[in-house]
């Protein structure tokens, strides 16, 4: 269905840090001719109300994503290891702050 038009500006994914101390979080995507323009457009599109203090952009074609169809085999190894959670362990009530 998708016909990537050769004349179309490349697609970029935008990540925004909402304030110092927090991670950059995916905000959306946009088209821009280069990285600098992508940052400037991201400023206008995604931070009109002071939503960010830092912007990352990466061309969408460079993103590699896991396949949802393989989710079962990919995450299965974690499901039977409940001993990785602190709630797995029974402690006497007298033990506090552990």
């Amino acid at each position: 269905m998708s016909q990537q038009n050769k004349n179309e500006w490349p697609l970029w994914e935008v990540f925004i840090r909402s304030k110092a101390g927090l991670d950059h979080k995916h905000a959306g995507s946009l088209h821009a001719a280069d990285a600098q323009m992508a940052i400037e457009n991201a400023r206008d599109v995604y931070t009109r109300r002071m939503e960010g203090v830092s912007i990352w952009v990466v061309e969408s074609k460079h993103i590699r994503a896991s396949d949802p169809g393989e989710a079962a085999s990919l995450y299965e190894p974690a499901t039977d290891k409940i001993y990785r959670h602190p709630t797995f362990y029974d402690l006497p009530d007298e033990v506090k702050y552990m």
């Binding site: 269905m1 998708s2 016909q3 990537q4 038009n5 179309e8």
Partner: peptide
Amino acid sequence: TLGISRDE
């Protein structure tokens, strides 16, 4: 994200 291009 559904597979249609912006230009389309």
